[in-house]
């Protein structure tokens, strides 16, 4: 089920739905920032500091990971919070996605 739809529309009650919900809650979600050749490195660092409250050193290290590896996990946790962070990163035009941590 779509995470965004789950906030807006009530699902039909049923056993299958409950099992799916439990499964999705069991594993956390990663917020991933992807490299972009145009966005300034200082802008990425500044945005990570603003969105997550990271120190300058931590944000800079994550930015360098994004730059050198093409992508980096910048946060891991509950899905709703991950969605909010992705929205904030998109608000700053950073290329960001979320994906569930694999078993």
């Amino acid at each position: 089920m779509s995470p965004f739809a789950s906030h807006a529309a009530a699902a039909e009650p049923g056993v299958i739905e409950e099992v799916e919900t439990r499964t999705s809650l069991a594993r956390p979600w990663n917020v991933i920032v992807h490299d972009d050749p145009i966005t300034l490195m200082t802008y990425v660092t500044m945005t990570l500091q603003k969105v997550f409250g990271y120190s300058q050193d931590k944000a800079h290290g994550m930015m360098m990971d994004v730059h050198s590896k093409g992508r980096a996990i910048v946060w891991t946790g509950a899905r709703e919070q991950a969605e909010l962070y992705v929205f904030k990163l998109h608000s700053a035009q950073l290329s960001a996605t979320l994906e569930q941590v694999e078993d």
Partner: peptide, 12 residues
């Protein structure tokens, strides 16, 4: 950009 590889989630 789309935030995930889930088409339904991306549509929402």
């Amino acid at each position: 950009p789309a935030p995930s590889d889930d088409e339904e989630a991306n549509a929402d």
